[in-house]
Design a protein around this nucleic acid. Structure first.
Lengths: 329, 329
DNA sequence: CTCACTACTGCAAACGTTCCCAAAGATAAT
DNA sequence: ATTATCTTTGGGAACGTTTGCAGTAGTGAG
């Protein structure tokens, strides 16, 4: 591929001058400029950003690690963050960890080799190896969805405990008294533990409520369906169900209707995330809305600030939520 | 950041030797190797991939341009393609064109500057400026979702004409005779034009059918709703509706039920894409399944082959589809 | 005609690697 | 001891840019 050198030879000037034309610095005679530009056209010169990056020690690259692409949280988050990153004249280097902790660590290392300027990490859980990798990263890291503030890692999280608390409130107010919770992996602090804790915390304060069931599965409709089927067998008096995600809740409602009960009447159901699915299913799902794309934007902005200042101004950002009432509760 | 040079100084050998240790080439005395490795640990050396890329003239970067992140087609496609690209030891450089042709062109150019090894382009429409940009790209381009074979651009597309044809067949068999079509932008050859053409083509062969309505909107539920409301006013005898996407179809069914007709009975409705929404809504939506993530994989594979061979082996790949029958038709 | 000044241009080093080539040291064969 | 062979190491060019510094031309003033 044609380089600065060939353009120089073709137009009969030095590389330096060509470089000046390209970056249109002043101090180049108009006639030379023209000559050079013609030569650039002629041999289809395309600047080599790799060489530039090396020379300038700046890659304009932001590494983004997501656990999976096809989920609301990440897809919308990506939409948001990419707009901010683009606006800042930088590029997104994307990696899919497939919820594998080892891969997350691997990518952080690769990103450092690529000399990214910062890393946005949608984490599913935070173990010591991951914390170590983040600490060792030369590029600043912003964590999304899990709280890393204990380890002094700048994080942007959802207010999961409050959501759980509010869920308890909504279920009780709707008349439920035997309440179950379907979570995911116990290593997922935010989605499983916090949401449950919030729920439990509220229920403890309303004395008359029986202890609740805590069941665990995957992030899928199918898993929600299976979990609920089992739950209905184990605990027939169930009349309120808080699901860690909307998908799980939709599976749950399917199981409920198959057992000849009706969601929203016999059993109040609540999800989290305000997935587009929630407004389309029947009965429509009451849930909590998280501003995923705004979160992506905020995270990107936070990272850019961090890159700029080299020091965290905000170290933890808690995003609020919005209760959405539909038919299921 | 520590470079090869510092490691060399610290361990008292030359840069060359350090380089050999890092790439563990043979011909390094065990004792030297150890010494160097200790020094690497000590000063936390991280290889600079930018310099390597420049030297080796290989970036291991694949540029991917999508019109939006949060849609089934792209999210699942990204999931698929990223797994293949990752497997090949390459990285995804992601750009969101927001369906803006100018941005697509801009990104192709930027990607060329970044010296990506290939580009995967989810295009919405193919105008001459875009074709020109693709032609001028030094990195091979594979087009996804639109047919560029006329311009000799390797493409991977869905069999949209056949889907339209099959839709006609299914609607007629279900007893419809006044059939409407809701598409999108007319510049979107694949989603709007081809699907409509297929439908029209089938209907022409079944003589007794009246001419059909062709209405146009956006890719959203809301737009499908609005279009259908209007369509029902303009053409009350409507009893079959083919929607270019599932989202549009879901909006359509909402409008239908609001006008006191029932989808699947009074009006047969068909979507395209087998969005997760389609199995969750009521009545559930009959549609066509496209293997989006497999398509992403295929596209990535095709691009990798192209990078390898420098010549297109397959220049056009048509993905088949699967009819999914549910309640709406 | 010389001097000083400005406007323009080229040389060469540097960014952090890799890798060819040659040098040096070690070992074995004559 | 000399030569040959093999192993291990270092020097330095190259990848394609940018940039400080120096050099050359041209111009106007004295």
């Amino acid at each position: 591929m044609a380089g600065l050198h060939e353009v120089a030879k073709l137009s009969g000037v030095s590389k330096s001058t060509v470089s000046r034309v390209i970056n249109n610095e002043y101090g180049v005679k108009a006639s030379t400029k023209e000559k050079v530009q013609k030569a650039i056209e002629e041999c289809g010169y395309v600047a080599n950003q790799v060489a530039r990056d090396l020379k300038s020690q700046k890659t304009h690259l932001i590494g983004v690690i997501v656990p999976r692409m096809s989920s609301n949280a990440t897809a919308k988050g990506l939409d948001g963050l990419s707009s901010i990153i683009d606006q800042a004249g930088k590029h997104v280097l994307l990696a899919n960890s497939q919820q594998d902790n080892a891969k997350e660590i691997e990518y952080i290392k690769r990103f450092n080799q690529k000399r990214v300027e910062g890393i946005l990490l949608y984490a599913t859980h935070l173990d010591s190896a991951l914390v170590k990798a983040i600490k060792e990263s030369n590029a600043p890291v912003v964590l999304i969805g899990q709280d890393g503030s204990l380890f002094n890692i700048p994080s942007i999280i959802y207010d999961d405990v409050s959501v759980g608390f509010s869920a308890g409130q909504r279920l009780i107010e709707a008349g439920a008294s035997n309440i179950g919770f379907i979570g995911v992996n116990s290593q997922d602090i935010a989605v499983d533990q916090c949401r449950f804790q919030g729920l439990a915390h509220f229920l403890q304060h309303s004395k008359q409520i029986d202890p609740l069931f805590h069941s665990r599965g995957e992030f899928t409709i199918e898993s929600g369906y299976q979990q609920t089927k089992q739950l209905l067998l184990d605990w027939p008096q169930l009349d309120g169900l808080f699901c860690a995600t909307d998908r799980i809740a939709i599976g749950a409602m399917k199981a409920i209707s198959e057992s000849n009960k009706v969601s929203g009447k016999d059993i109040k159901v609540l999800g989290v995330g305000n997935d587009e699915l929630a407004q389309v299913c029947t009965p429509s799902l009451s849930t909590f809305n998280y501003a995923f794309d705004f979160t992506g934007k905020k995270a990107a902005q936070m990272l850019l600030d961090l890159i700029e200042n080299k020091q965290a101004v905000v170290s933890k950002l808690v995003m609020s939520f919005e209760s959405i009432s539909r038919q299921s509760c």
